[in-house]
């Protein structure tokens, strides 16, 4: 009788994993290029999710059908979030490239600042979520929220696109060159500052897209980003900081522990198991599963 539960747990792992993948991609990209840990990544996610919950009903009230309203809202939200990201980069982070401590504190301060701002602007109450793709679908006789299927599909497409652009486009190649050795890259005429800005903005856009995708199924409050941040960190560090395939592997690793542990042992123990297992993995592979020595 393992089959039904087994299939169910596989599907849950994929659901959870795709959420963490979406959240982690930006984190790992930022680390790869700038060698800093962005403590405010969750705030980009949160602001985007909140804006979507405001814009979709607004556009729907002006006669737009749900799907076009959602796409327009997402596009607007991503644009706004990227603009905020540009400001953060231009007036702050640019001074702390490759400065782990300085960037960490700056983003920590920004996270607190924006938590306070969001709380006073949007209030602390959970925001009503728009229904984009309603209902459930059955996969191998297991009921799954349709929106989760969308998130999974988007996670696959986005990671695919990111992986392709990192290997096949000029920008991607330059970013990878910076990530592996920024001095050598600069000697070859790659403009480090401009490219790390582009990398940061891409990461911000990824956080915003993740927020827009999660808005219909996650909770939407100013504090939501902080909740995802810890597991995002764990996924990225287990996979190997700066590695896109690593982020996917790390996210799946954590998702499987959360699903299997949560089902068989209980949610509280599963959360602790994540932290313990992350430490164990790093002891065996000090640079994560796919990190380069």
């Amino acid at each position: 009788m393992m089959s039904a539960t087994f299939v169910q747990l596989v599907i849950i792992s994929l659901e959870i994993g795709s959420v963490y993948v979406l959240f982690s991609l930006g984190l790992t990209l930022i680390f790869g290029i700038m060698k800093v840990v962005n403590f405010a990544h969750g705030q980009f996610f949160a602001v985007s999710a909140i804006l979507v919950t405001i814009l979709v009903p607004f556009l729907a009230a002006h006669g737009l059908p749900v799907l076009p309203a959602y796409f327009l809202a997402t596009a607007t939200t991503v644009a706004v979030t990227v603009m905020i990201g540009w400001g953060v980069y231009q007036f702050g982070l640019v001074r702390f490239l490759r400065d782990m401590e300085g960037a960490f504190i700056l983003t920590l301060g920004l996270a607190m600042l924006s938590d306070g701002l969001m709380l006073s602007i949007f209030g602390g109450a959970p925001r009503p979520e728009p229904v984009i793709v309603p209902g459930t679908v059955r996969i191998f006789a297991v009921a799954v929220l349709a929106q989760h299927v969308v998130v999974f599909g988007a996670a696959v497409c986005i990671t695919g696109a990111l992986y392709w652009s990192m290997t096949a486009t000029r920008l991607g190649k330059a970013l990878r060159a910076i990530a592996s050795d920024h001095e050598a890259a600069m000697l070859q005429g790659i403009p480090y500052r401009r490219l790390s800005r582009d990398g940061f903005l891409i990461a911000t856009a990824l956080a915003a897209i993740a927020g827009a995708l999660m808005a219909p199924i996650s909770e939407v409050t100013p504090a939501v980003g902080n909740d995802y941040l810890m597991n995002g960190f764990m996924a990225v560090v287990v996979g190997g900081l700066g590695s896109v395939p690593g982020a996917i592997l790390g996210a799946m690793f954590i998702a499987v522990i959360e699903a299997v542990g949560g089902y068989y042992v209980g949610p509280s123990a599963a959360t602790m198991a994540i932290f313990v297992m992350v430490i164990v993995v790093l002891l065996i592979r000090p640079r994560g599963l796919l990190g380069r020595a």
Partner: peptide
């Protein structure tokens, strides 16, 4: 065990440790 690991990995292990101990 852990000080063989350096930089951001050591830092994030510290995060995991603090969280695990707290729970």
């Amino acid at each position: 065990i852990v000080l063989r690991i350096k930089g951001p990995y050591f830092m994030l292990i510290g995060f995991a440790f603090a969280e695990a101990v707290q729970i």
